[in-house]
C-alpha cells in the first residue's frame, strides 16, 4: 500500500476547502459519465423493472389478501411498496462492484487511477452513479404502486427526501460492493458472493414484514442492516399515513454515516484491484 492519504492531493497551496471542492467536482464527473452511458443505452432500465413488478404484483397482492402479516394501520401492499423499492435499489447497487472488475479487465480503471483524482472521489462517483441508476427504479416502483392503488404521499418535500433516501441507500450498497470487489478481484467470485449476500440482506430487514415478528437474533441482525433504515425512511416518506419507526432524520443520518465509513474503506482498498 502507498503512504498517501485517501483524500485530495496535497499541493502546498491546497487548502482544505479547495480539496473538498475538488472531491465534489471529480465525484460529479464520474457520475456524469454514468448519466451519459444511460443516455446512450437505456434498455437496461427497462429490464430492471421486471423484478419489482413481479414482487408487487404477485407477492404483494397475495399477502394483501391473506392478511398474514401485521402491518398496523397500513394495508400490506402499502407497507411493502417502500420495501420493494429498497429491494430493487439493493439489487442494482450490490452488483455494482462488478463494474470495477470489468473496467479493470478492460484497462479503463487504470486510467482513472492514474488521473489526478482523489481516490475517495472515484468511489463516491461510482456510488452516486449507482444512485442515478436507482432513481429510475424509484420512478418505476412509483408508477406500479400508483397503478395498484397504493396510497402514495404526493408532498413534493417528501418526494425530494425519497430521492435522497434512494440515492443514499444505493450509495451505501454500491460502496459495500466496491469493497467486496476489491477483496475478491475476479468476476466469478464476486458473482458468487453477491448472490450469497443479497437474500440475507433483504430478508433480514423490515422490507416485507415488520421487525417485531422476527425471532430475537434476527431482530438484532436487522437492526444492524442499513437496508432497514432505508426502508424505514421510505415508509415514512412515500406512503400517506406511513410513519418511520426510527424517524426519517435518524434513518438518513445512519445511511450517511454508514456510506462515509464504507467510502473510506473502499478508497483504501480498491486501488489494489489493479495490483
Amino acid at each position: 500500500m502507498t503512504h498517501e492519504g485517501l483524500g485530495a492531493p496535497r499541493a502546498a497551496s491546497d487548502s482544505a476547502g479547495a480539496a473538498v471542492v475538488r472531491l465534489v467536482k471529480k465525484t460529479l464527473v464520474i457520475a456524469e459519465l454514468e448519466v451519459r452511458k444511460l443516455r446512450h443505452d437505456a434498455t437496461e432500465l427497462v429490464t430492471r423493472a421486471v423484478q419489482p413488478a413481479l414482487w408487487l404484483l404477485i407477492f404483494g397482492q397475495v399477502f394483501t389478501r391473506v392478511r398474514a402479516i401485521p402491518t398496523g394501520n397500513l394495508r400490506y401492499l402499502d407497507f411493502m411498496a417502500p420495501g420493494i423499492l429498497a429491494q430493487s435499489v439493493l439489487f442494482i447497487a450490490i452488483f455494482y462492484g462488478i463494474a470495477i472488475i470489468w473496467e479493470r479487465d478492460l484497462g479503463i480503471l487504470h486510467k482513472f487511477l492514474v488521473s489526478p483524482s482523489p481516490r475517495a472521489a472515484l468511489v463516491l462517483g461510482k456510488a452516486l452513479s449507482a444512485g442515478v441508476r436507482s432513481l429510475s427504479q424509484a420512478a418505476i416502483v412509483y408508477l406500479l404502486a400508483l397503478l395498484l392503488g397504493v396510497r402514495l404521499n404526493s408532498n413534493p418535500g417528501a418526494i425530494a427526501l425519497v430521492i435522497c433516501a434512494v440515492i443514499l441507500g444505493a450509495a451505501f450498497f454500491a460502496t459495500l460492493s466496491l469493497v467486496i470487489a476489491s477483496l475478491v478481484k475476479t468476476r466469478e467470485r464476486f458473482m458468487g458472493i453477491g448472490q450469497i449476500m443479497t437474500m440475507p440482506l433483504f430478508f433480514a430487514s423490515n422490507a416485507i414484514y415488520p421487525i417485531a415478528i422476527m425471532p430475537g437474533w434476527l431482530q438484532v441482525v436487522s437492526h444492524a442492516n442499513p437496508l432497514t433504515y432505508e426502508v424505514d425512511a421510505l415508509r415514512g416518506l412515500m406512503i400517506s399515513g406511513g410513519s418511520a419507526a426510527y424517524g426519517v432524520g435518524p434513518d438518513l443520518g445512519i445511511l450517511v454515516g454508514a456510506t462515509a465509513v464504507m467510502t473510506l474503506i473502499a478508497a483504501r482498498l480498491f486501488p489494489r484491484v489493479v495490483a
Binding site: E4, P9, G107, P116
Partner: peptide, 21 residues
C-alpha cells in the same frame, strides 16, 4: 510512492489494453 498525487498531476498513461470506454 510518497508523492503519488503530485506525480499523477504531470503524467499521462495509455495502458496496454485498448481502454477507451
Amino acid at each position: 510512492v510518497r508523492q503519488a498525487n503530485a506525480v499523477r498531476r504531470i503524467i499521462g498513461y495509455v495502458p496496454q489494453l485498448l481502454s477507451a470506454d
